[in-house]
């Protein structure tokens, strides 16, 4: 049975519920590491509008999750990314990685997030309190984060 679950959705997610689904029927798991990304209200930001490339997004997210499963010998991996308009404080992304031991679970979550930021086709538009609207520019730091996982694709 596939233990990869990848979704793009406008609705909020429930990390506890997702964790329960990930663990159901498995006994060899000793650790679940979880990351939730939120809309951060820097510099007068009011909301983000998230756009994606339907089809390619899901296939890239699946490839990233498969890569994490193999690389860290995970028992399961859930990746949920929201799209649409999200106000400051709203959760954007959830990554859950389940493994026998904590170190691989932690590492796998970072791996998935680093690849998501650089390889999954999402784009963010910022909406500020003063009415300005602008597309978010990619950060060189994200590309550097990817480099620590070595060459090659997710």
């Amino acid at each position: 049975m596939s233990r990869i679950s990848v979704r793009v959705q406008t609705a909020p997610f429930d990390p506890t519920h997702e964790s329960t689904l990930l663990l159901a029927g498995q006994s060899g798991i000793g650790a679940v590491a979880s990351f939730t990304g939120l809309v951060r209200g820097d510099g007068g930001l009011k909301a983000l509008e998230l756009e994606h490339y339907p089809g390619m997004t899901e296939s890239m997210m699946t490839r990233i999750a498969e890569s994490a499963m193999t690389r860290f010998a995970l028992s399961g991996c859930t990746v949920i990314h929201r799209v649409g308009r999200l106000e400051v404080g709203a959760p954007i992304v959830l990554v859950l990685c389940a493994s026998a031991h904590r170190s691989t679970a932690f590492q796998a979550v970072e791996f998935v997030m680093d690849w998501l930021k650089s390889r999954a086709p999402f784009w963010k538009k910022e909406e500020f309190m003063d009415g300005r609207i602008q597309w978010v520019q990619p950060r060189e730091q994200d590309a550097q984060s990817l480099r620590r996982w070595g060459e090659g694709d997710a």
Partner: peptide, 10 residues
């Protein structure tokens, strides 16, 4: 074929 800016998800 799709053209787009560098991605900014996550």
């Amino acid at each position: 074929i799709a053209f787009f800016p560098p991605v900014t998800g996550g």
